[in-house]
């Protein structure tokens, strides 16, 4: 007989006798007679431990996410509060409040001003929709894109060029030619438009409030101040290669600070 078979047989011969069982039973009952079953506290149960562990893990993860978010926001706010950004905003705010000495730009609340660390201030107007949106070219081509706007104080007209201006800002509409056609590869400036309009509307002060491409025309919103009243107007600039640049000016009387009625429509052509 193998040793393990012998072991099995020997062990099976050893068993608790009836007397032993009765003795154990009575002893167990006696020992537990005065003691009620001691339930383990709830925090010792496996279910509670698992739930607590899961909750702790979630809290730790949320804490890490919160800390990372706070650190990231802190970094951004520190970056946002840098001097150049404040400077650019202050400059534009000052311009908007001025009435007769500087160029006035229309800045609607939804406009976004970005400062990318360079002297230029990128001005993204919602009127342009997307900087990279394709626009129809006068020759029917759609192969150029607007890549953004910028404000360049240092590239404005020198003092003396504009008597009413203490500081001039040019709004540059940046276009990038996709093909090799150079026709639209130019920068249009509000200052240049304004100077031309002033020659046409002599005796009046003209401010260009906004400037955008509208189909094949370049439309601008201008503010004309004269002796009689302050008028708001729209300028449509049409670039005709054969006859030169043509401007369409529509003026509106400013009575209730709203553009309500059309006064005149004056075509200023070459």
């Amino acid at each position: 007989m193998k040793a393990e078979e012998q072991l099995k047989q020997s062990m099976q011969d050893m068993h608790l006798s009836v007397e032993a069982k009765n003795r154990i039973l009575s002893n167990v009952l006696a020992e537990t007679a005065d003691t009620k079953p001691e339930k383990r506290p709830f925090y010792c149960s496996p279910v509670f431990r698992r739930v607590a562990g899961a909750c702790a893990a979630v809290i730790v993860v949320l804490g890490i996410v919160f800390a990372v978010t706070v650190m990231r926001n802190g970094g951004l706010s520190e970056k946002d509060s840098s001097a150049p950004k404040e400077t650019s905003e202050n400059v534009l705010a000052m311009d908007a409040q001025s009435t007769d000495s500087v160029y006035v730009f229309s800045i609607s609340p939804q406009d976004r001003i970005e400062y990318d660390g360079t002297p230029d201030i990128t001005y993204n107007s919602p009127d342009i929709k997307a900087p990279n949106s394709e626009l129809a070219a006068p020759n029917g081509k759609t192969d150029y894109k607007i890549i953004g706007w910028s404000v360049s104080p240092e590239e404005g007209p020198k003092e003396g060029e504009n008597a009413n201006s203490t500081t001039a800002y040019n709004v540059w509409r940046k276009e990038r030619e996709v093909t090799e056609d150079q026709y639209f590869q130019k920068l249009l400036t509000l200052a240049a438009l304004e100077r031309e309009l002033k020659e046409k509307l002599s005796g009046k002060t003209v401010y260009v409030l906004s400037f955008e491409k509208n189909g094949e025309r370049y439309d601008a919103t201008i503010l004309v101040t004269g002796e009689e009243a302050t008028r708001y107007g729209y300028v449509g600039m049409e670039d005709v290669p054969s006859s030169g640049t043509r401007y369409h000016v529509v003026l509106r009387r400013n009575e209730t600070s709203q553009m309500l009625e059309i006064d005149t429509m004056e075509e200023i052509s070459d």
Binding site: A3, E4, L7, Q9, S10, Q12, D13, M14
Partner: peptide, 29 residues
């Protein structure tokens, strides 16, 4: 512990380390 108990194999079992004893008893007995 009993009439027919074989103490020989039990004596031998007790000479083994405990980690082998428990396994042998649980498996064979």
């Amino acid at each position: 512990v009993g009439k027919d108990a074989d103490y020989g194999i039990m004596d031998v079992l007790r000479t083994l380390p405990e980690k082998y004893r428990s396994v042998l008893v649980l498996f064979y007995v």
